[in-house]
Design a protein around this nucleic acid. Structure first.
Lengths: 109, 109
DNA sequence: TGAGTATATAACAAATAACGTATATGCGCG
DNA sequence: CGCGCATATACGTTATTTGTTATATACTCA
């Protein structure tokens, strides 16, 4: 899993990142919040950690994960040259946001 | 190839997009500029077109491809909640840009 | 109309990544 | 020390994707 872009191609990993955008969480909290099996969470966290998207802090037998901005800045940087295509159409962004299907960052009903 | 994110996970497709960011190009121009086989270019363009990243204009027997901003706006939107992690550290972005390995948008020597 | 150029698609092989299950490590507490 | 909880890893399977080669379609111009 080399590139920043490949890492966020995976929907579960994006969900994890979006969840951590709010605040740091333990593996168990992520597991329960996203309703995915624990080994899956750990594996995705491993990929995210290796790519520098997150870092872990030890709290007793738990690991608390939190965002690290660097790789996201790379995304931001890659995106920059395209901004001119929608500069001026500021509301296009809002319209798009409205129509977007929301990423799951929560428990399912 | 469902998601916007999966589409740009592929380095050649990012190279094509970056090339088109400058101006519209024919398939042959892309092929020659990036040094990749024509069927490969066509196939990637197909994926990009299906995902709405580009559109084609017919010019005699050539197709001229150009950027469409919508999917990139989705990226931009997804990124938005993370901006707070580097807001204020504006120079972090520039440092990152400096250290980034450049995407190939040109002929190789 | 026939040759040539530009682009698209088909078909197959190879590589990669994701998931599930089972198991290992690590820490704290009785 | 040994049990239990929290997290990590190994392994086998399956599915998806990419590159490659060959061929099809489409348009232009002599």
């Amino acid at each position: 899993m080399e590139s920043t872009f490949a890492v966020i191609a995976e929907p579960n990993r994006r969900a994890i990142l979006s969840l951590l955008a709010a605040s740091e969480r333990s593996v168990g909290e992520i597991e329960h919040a996203l309703g995915m099996p624990q080994p899956s969470v750990s594996k995705h966290l491993r990929v995210l950690r290796d790519a520098g998207f997150v870092e872990a802090r030890v709290d007793a037998q738990r690991r608390l994960y939190r965002i690290r901005p660097e790789p996201l800045l790379e995304l931001e940087a890659w995106l920059a040259p395209f901004r001119r295509f929608w500069a001026g159409h500021v509301d296009a962004l809002e319209q798009r946001l409205d129509r977007m299907e929301p990423e799951r960052t929560d428990d399912q009903p």
